[in-house]
């Protein structure tokens, strides 16, 4: 099975202190470290596991700049067969639809049985997966928590819905799935793996190679534009439970039960 995973490089939320820049429309990026969007990492792991079960290849694609090669190499070290970078100045300032347009053009150049995206990006709007499916006229399922390959034409997928319930569906291939974290346990990517793929060439495509009309992407085409960025004011502080250890435990159980956490 040929699987394409669309990935994005984002500031690593666990390793940064996010602060607003002076203009107030973006975050301060000088001291940031980046990594692959966590959801996308689960999607790559899932793709690698499917391929190791039934054969095929995993391609990881990202729309970005040379800096974004870093995450492609990391995913190749993880076991993806190929990384592809789509990069063009014309893409700068694209909204979700613009990115989906770029990816659609790439998908149409090759053949993929299955396209996975993360359910959302940590710094994104959870738009691209659904839009890409619609543009390609592929079936789409979001927030997928398990994938079972039935045959070369069909998958059985599990989605987690409200309240922890599960919904199981069949979906025709080719299709687009957006992957929820927790679908698997992504493997560790060590320093050695990254060093080993350091010099593997990464194919790069620009707008012309994908036959994209620059007017359909980038800032000019964007119909969603960010106007502000703010950190919400701190709300009421945490509730501190008081009493003996047993009393605290009882209060905690009551609180959790009241919120539906215990049945």
């Amino acid at each position: 099975m040929e699987i394409l995973v669309c990935a994005k490089r984002v500031p690593d939320t666990s390793e940064n202190e996010i602060e607003l820049n002076n203009a107030g429309r973006d975050i301060e990026r000088d001291d940031l470290v980046y990594s692959i969007n966590e959801f996308d990492n689960y999607a790559v792991e899932e793709a690698i596991q499917i391929v190791s079960r039934i054969g095929g290849a995993v391609t990881v694609v990202t729309v970005g700049t040379d800096d974004d090669e870093e995450i492609l190499r990391r995913e190749m070290a993880m076991g993806a067969n190929q990384g592809v970078l789509i990069s063009d100045d014309a893409f700068t300032g694209s909204d979700g639809k613009g990115i989906a347009t770029v990816l659609k053009a790439f998908v149409e150049k090759a053949h993929y049985d299955l396209i996975l995206t993360g359910a959302q990006a940590e710094a994104g709007e959870a738009q691209v997966g659904g839009m890409l499916a619609a543009m390609l006229d592929y079936p789409f399922a979001s927030l997928v928590t398990a994938i079972e390959v039935i045959d070369s034409k069909k998958l059985k997928i599990t989605r987690e819905i409200e309240g922890g319930n599960k919904e199981i569906s069949e979906i025709d291939l080719p299709c687009v799935l957006s992957i929820q974290t927790g679908i698997n346990e992504p493997r560790y990517v060590g320093m050695r793996g990254i060093l080993q793929v350091q010099s593997v060439p990464i194919p790069t495509f620009d707008a012309a190679q994908l036959n994209l009309n620059p007017a359909t992407v980038g800032e000019a085409a964007a119909r969603v534009n960010r106007v502000d960025y703010f950190v919400p004011a701190l709300g009421k502080g945490a509730e501190i439970l008081k009493g003996t250890r047993e009393e605290i435990a009882e209060q905690l159980i009551e609180l959790v039960s009241a919120k539906g956490g215990l049945k």
């Binding site: 666990s14 390793e15 990594s35 346990e185 060590g190 793996g193």
Partner: peptide, 21 residues
């Protein structure tokens, strides 16, 4: 185990942070 990517989830974040930070 590390070479095969079999590292407990609880250790992956700190290791990644050690790499980047």
């Amino acid at each position: 185990l590390v070479d095969d990517g079999k590292v407990p989830q609880s250790l992956q974040k700190p290791l990644k942070a050690l790499e980047s930070r």
